[in-house]
């Protein structure tokens, strides 16, 4: 399974995931209270500097912005018409700061480290009956299921093509969902047969 992580040994890569996430929450919250173009531009320069510190290329930086490029442009035009270009610039700068910061954390933190941090962060939920180990279990199961579902979909599609049914998402989805549900039941039975207990008392 591919992840968005970009390997490296920089200070930002080594920083604990929890610290980075806390930083993001604090920065993200304060950004919403800033409406000054100079301050927001300064923040953007700092964020771009952080990409250099993390050894990212300019290409990587722009790749983070590409998915929101059109939304940002449309927002800018809409804001410029309604509230003037300054308001448009504030919204665009704020969004770019947020997206780039968040993406930087994703780029510099391993999925395994994120999972560990998540498991640690949700420990207090144990008091209200949520078992953190179950969360790790369902995370690993879901990641494992994605290629399985693609495989089942390919099999069903092939079987239907052989019978001349093609290009109907409904005709494809129904057998896929039923087959994967049956698979889920078998997996649950197998887990319990091996002594897994979802509600240990």
């Amino acid at each position: 399974m591919m992840s968005l992580y970009s390997p490296g040994e920089t200070a930002l890569h080594r920083l604990p995931a929890g610290t980075k996430l806390l930083g993001l929450v604090l920065a993200g919250t304060s950004l919403f209270f800033v409406a000054d173009i100079v301050v927001l531009s300064g923040a953007l320069i700092l964020v771009c500097g952080a990409y250099l510190v993390a050894n990212m290329t300019v290409k990587t930086l722009f790749a983070q912005l590409r998915p929101i490029l059109w939304i940002v442009l449309i927002l800018f035009v809409a804001q410029a018409f309604i509230n003037g270009w300054q308001a448009g610039l504030v919204v665009v700068l704020r969004l770019m700061n947020l997206i780039l910061l968040a993406a930087l954390i994703t780029l510099t933190t391993r999925v395994s480290e994120m999972t560990d941090t998540l498991e640690w962060a949700i420990q207090p939920l144990g008091w209200v009956g949520v078992d953190p180990r179950k969360i790790s279990l369902v995370i690993s199961m879901a990641i494992r299921f994605i290629p399985l579902i693609s495989q089942i979909t390919a099999e069903v599609r092939e079987a239907q093509r052989a019978r001349g049914i093609e290009k109907s998402i409904v005709a494809l989805a129904i057998p896929v969902v039923i087959r994967t549900l049956k698979m889920a039941d078998d997996i649950a039975d197998a887990m319990e047969a091996r002594g897994f207990d979802a509600d240990p008392r």
């Binding site: 968005l4 996430l21 993001l24 993200g28 983070q64 998915p67 929101i68 939304i71 927002l75 969004l95 947020l98 997206i99 780039l100 910061l101 968040a102 993406a103 954390i105 994703t106 780029l107």
Partner: peptide
């Protein structure tokens, strides 16, 4: 990644 949640 985290960015998608903070986007519009």
């Amino acid at each position: 990644g985290f960015g998608v949640f903070l986007g519009p």
